[in-house]
Design a protein around this nucleic acid. Structure first.
Length: 728
DNA sequence: AGGTTAGTAATTTTT
DNA sequence: TTACTAACCT
């Protein structure tokens, strides 16, 4: 047997060797999903079933695409070239450039970022005379994106599917938005998939062309596909049916972005002869971690069903720790202390991660780690190409590349400040509309014909001359020199040099980095495409640092030690997720918890605090139901944690019957079916003087069962649970 | 046009 | 708390 096959376990080998026909690989966390995918890819090539260019391999992230490319090359023993391997968006962009005319675009269409989309949408809404205060543009953007996620072009949206946004005018606005995009020769992210799917649906000749081109299709993270991606895949797989999807329904955490786990089930229906392989041997985590994660996720309904087994011989290990703390500060201290202790014991910081539900939660830990002098890095956050200075610089390049790029021009026309404000911009827009020309041309006319005067005229003239000059430079001096010159001569770099804010030097550094990055590209257009599609954070993974990130950001990563703080009702599971999506939302939160736990190889520390500062004021909180769903025999609860857990069981009123989400389950049913708690004998009436450990003395101003509103003498107005105060 | 101040809202975000 | 926006003043 060939060497690369010998390294696989039987299930993995089956997934690799079942080459023909539809195959669904259900791969639990840490079961070697990437290995299967890459080995399968290489296997197809090495057995001569297809040439490199005849396999279509789709991922969600650029990172995953890069990794797959590297690993396929490693197995082949040579660089893998000519592959159709990339993200859904990158592959669609590549295809769409060939067929742009079929959807009314030119092959050099631009790809808009979120800022541009929003700006354009605002303009569309303005033109439709909608009150931006009553109807928020981002809300409409979300509606349109959902439609695009579902493969619905404006003419496919039925009136019944219109939302109540703008009194049912969302469809009309969507159509207008698409019209504007076309006029600007631009596509947004959703369009890449939508247009391509429309083309494949409507043009059998084009579809046939791709059927001939691709003999095999490989799909990563299948549980995260949305409907339009599914349709696109299904169209491409028609005929040969050689499609292999790898995914894990238990790790589906992007439904709020349009992902539909149901695609897994649909797939089986559409390809009745499909086979399913389950990868269940986990090579990552210790037994207790696996057992805890499995027990937790077992609370979800409608799973396809997988059981993680420890695949390692050395899988025994410490129990999962659950620590309860008095407040969020103490939680941060606890995490900091353990980081220090384990570091002293020889653990590497790079092997520790703090995974939070929401980005803002990282701050408390950052502060603590700074105090302790422990190096850390925050993963995620603003990406390189999302920084204002980078977007500005790119907007300059876009105008250079395509003078008709109104959105880019609008962005930089007054950056740096040139005295071209709202009024001047409106004049330009009006002229542009009247003559049916782009903004740059409108500006040129206004300058020439005296439509603008004084400073505005001077500035616009200077800027337009600048662009003419830089455009001349481009073929002569190359794009790198041109960009640097353009940024200098336009006054853009000066703007940051004169800026006294602490971020300014960093921004100048970023601009230099951008110029350096540009050098890697042959053409300006190629670079702009890269920027739009490969918005990556060039994070220097260098140095021994603790990683801080959201649970979403941690998907696909693993660490020896994982801290999971903030397991409190409302925080995690997140209140809004439950409000908006009910049981589905809760189950997705639980999957997120599952993802978090399964990131850990050796140690997991779950924690929650009884009091948390949210914005300015303190709020008491209740331990997350997930804490309780962890199995006792795999978990070591800190003394006070055990106590607080009982507290949680006793407190049913906090849910107020709003979320009978857990009532289906035996164990908690008891809790839910308890008769309304009898009025407590020790109820604290309004007006009582009380003492609170943290806030000191105060007077009760209102009560709601066990929750008290208290006006504290020093700490101000707070709402706390009655068990945290005593009569003064 | 641009800077200042007061008011308001606040997950997750692969492309 | 911060960060962003809208109204307001210079």
């Amino acid at each position: 047997m060939t060497e690369y096959l010998a390294r696989l376990n039987p299930a993995q080998r089956e997934a690799v060797e079942t080459v023909d026909g539809p195959l669904l690989v259900l791969a639990g966390a840490g079961t070697g999903k990437t290995r299967v995918l890459t080995t399968r890819f290489a296997h197809i090539l090495l057995t001569g079933r297809a040439a490199p260019g005849q396999v279509l391999a789709v991922t969600f992230t650029n990172k995953a695409a890069r990794e797959m490319r590297e690993r396929v090359s490693a197995i082949l023993g040579r660089p893998a070239e000519g592959l159709w391997l990339g993200t859904f968006h990158a592959l669609c962009a590549r295809m769409l450039r060939r067929h742009a005319d079929l959807v009314g675009l030119k092959p050099n269409f631009g790809i808009l970022d979120t800022d541009d989309q929003l700006r354009l949408l605002k303009q569309v809404m303005e033109a439709a005379r909608l009150d931006a205060k009553r109807w928020a543009p981002p809300a409409l953007m979300a509606v349109i994106q959902r439609w695009k996620d579902r493969g619905l072009a404006p003419d496919r949206v039925t009136p019944a599917e219109d939302t109540d946004f703008a009194n049912g005018r969302a469809r009309e606005l969507y159509a207008a938005y698409q019209e504007r995009l076309r006029a600007l020769n631009s596509a947004d992210f959703g369009d890449l998939l939508l247009h391509m799917t429309e083309i494949l649906r409507g043009r059998p000749d084009v579809l046939a062309q791709y059927h001939r081109a691709f003999r095999y299709i490989l799909v990563d993270e299948y549980q995260d596909t949305n409907l339009v991606q599914y349709l696109w895949l299904r169209l491409l797989a028609q005929g040969h049916h050689n499609i292999c999807c790898v995914g894990d329904d238990d790790q589906s955490i992007y439904s709020w972005r349009g992902a539909e786990v149901e695609n897994i089930l649909r797939f089986e229906k559409d390809f009745p002869e499909s086979r399913i392989v389950r990868l269940e041997a986990n090579y990552r985590s210790t037994r207790p971690i696996l057992a805890a994660a499995s027990a937790l996720i077992a609370h979800n309904e409608g799973r396809l069903g997988k059981t993680l087994r420890a695949g390692r011989n050395d899988a025994d290990g410490e129990k999962v720790r659950v620590v309860s703390l008095w407040d969020s500060d103490e939680e941060a201290r606890m995490v900091g202390e353990r980081v220090e202790t384990w570091r002293r014991d020889g653990d590497s910081l790079a092997e520790m991660a703090i995974l939070v539900r929401a980005g803002f939660q990282t701050r408390a830990f950052e502060e603590r780690l700074i105090t302790l002098g422990v190096p850390y890095r925050v993963v995620g956050g603003l990406r390189f190409y999302e920084r204002a200075e980078i977007r500005d610089a790119i907007a300059y390049m876009r105008v250079l590349n395509q003078p008709a790029d109104d959105l880019a021009f609008e962005r930089i026309v007054n950056v740096p400040r040139r005295g071209v404000g709202e009024v001047a911009l409106r004049t330009m827009h009006q002229t542009a509309r009247e003559h049916g020309v782009p903004l740059t041309e409108a500006a040129a006319r206004l300058v020439a014909e005296g439509g603008v005067k004084g400073r505005v005229k001077e500035s616009l003239a200077a800027l337009l001359h600048g662009f003419a000059r830089w455009r001349e430079m481009l073929p002569r001096d190359g794009h790198v020199v041109t960009l640097a010159t353009m940024l200098d001569e336009s006054g853009y770099t000066d703007m940051w040099k004169q800026d006294k804010s602490p971020e300014a030097p960093g921004r100048l550094e970023n601009l230099k980095e951008l110029v350096r990055a540009l050098a890697d590209f042959e053409t300006l257009a190629g670079f702009l495409d890269h920027v739009a599609l490969v918005m990556e954070n060039e994070e220097s993974a260098e140095g021994d640092r603790v990683s801080l990130m959201t649970l979403h950001g941690a998907k696909g990563l693993e660490f020896d030690t994982v801290f999971l703080p903030g397991w409190e009702e409302g925080v995690f599971p997140n209140q809004r997720a439950m409000d908006e999506s009910g049981l589905k939302g809760l189950e997705e939160e639980r999957r997120l918890a599952y993802v978090g736990l399964t990131r850990a190889r050796r140690r997991a520390v779950v924690s929650y605090a009884a009091n948390r500062r949210i914005y300015a004021n303190w709020q008491s909180s209740i331990p997350s139901r997930f804490v309780e769903e962890l199995p006792d025999d795999q978990v070591e609860r800190d003394g006070s944690a055990a106590m607080a857990r009982e507290t949680r069981l006793g407190i049913t009123s906090v849910f107020n019957g709003q979320f009978p989400l857990v009532a289906r389950r035996q164990k908690v049913v008891e809790v839910w079916e308890q008769p309304a708690r009898p009025p407590r004998e020790d109820a604290i009436p309004v007006g009582t003087r009380v003492f609170h450990q943290k806030f000191g003395y105060g007077t009760v101003t209102a009560t709601d069962d066990d929750r008290l509103d208290i006006a504290f003498d020093k700490a101000g107005d707070k709402r706390v649970l009655d068990r945290f105060v005593e009569r003064a």
